[in-house]
Amino acid sequence: MGILPTSNKFPVLVVLNPHSGRKQGLEIWENTVKPALNAANKPFRLIESNSQGHVISYFVNNIKPILTDLAQSLSTTSGTTTDEETIVYPTTAKLQIIVLGGDGTVHEIVNGILKGVEGTSFVTDSFRPEVEFSVIPTGTGNAISTSLGVMNAQDAVDRFNAGKTVPLRLMSVTSQNSQLYTVVVNSYGLHCATVYDSEEFRHLGNDRFRQAAMKNVENLRQYEGKLSFYGPIQRYNRASSSLLYDSKEINTTESAATLTLPGPFTYLVITKQASLEPGFTPTPFAKTSDDWMDVLAVQNVGQAEIIQMFGSTATGTHVNQDHVEYIKAKAIELEAPTQGRLCIDGEFMTFGAGPEGKVRFEVTSDPNIQIFHIFA
Rank of each mutant, 00 (worst) to 15 (best):
F160P: 02
A336R: 08
I136V: 15
E224Q: 13
P232T: 08
T253M: 12
T146E: 12
T124I: 03
K42Y: 08
S121H: 11
L46K: 06
I87R: 09
S247L: 11
T174Q: 15
Q176P: 01
Y245D: 12
L46I: 06
H323E: 08
T253Y: 12
V117E: 02
F351D: 05
V135H: 11
P355K: 13
I306R: 01
Q299V: 01
D290G: 09
G357M: 06
T252M: 09
F280N: 09
D103Q: 07
Q24T: 14
M349W: 10
P65M: 03
G116E: 05
D290Y: 08
S20P: 02
A153S: 15
L227T: 07
V184F: 09
L4Q: 11
F310W: 13
A256H: 09
F280Y: 12
G53F: 07
G231I: 02
Q72W: 09
E85S: 15
P65Y: 01
Q299W: 00
P282Y: 00
S275R: 11
I233N: 00
N237W: 01
V185Y: 05
A304P: 00
V173R: 05
G263I: 08
R159S: 11
T315M: 10
V131S: 02
R159V: 05
S187C: 07
G189K: 10
I28R: 04
P11Q: 08
E254K: 10
A239F: 12
A143T: 08
Q222Y: 00
E48I: 15
E305W: 00
V195H: 03
T82D: 13
A213K: 08
I144F: 07
R169I: 13
E84Q: 14
E362R: 12
F375G: 00
N17S: 08
F351Y: 15
R128K: 14
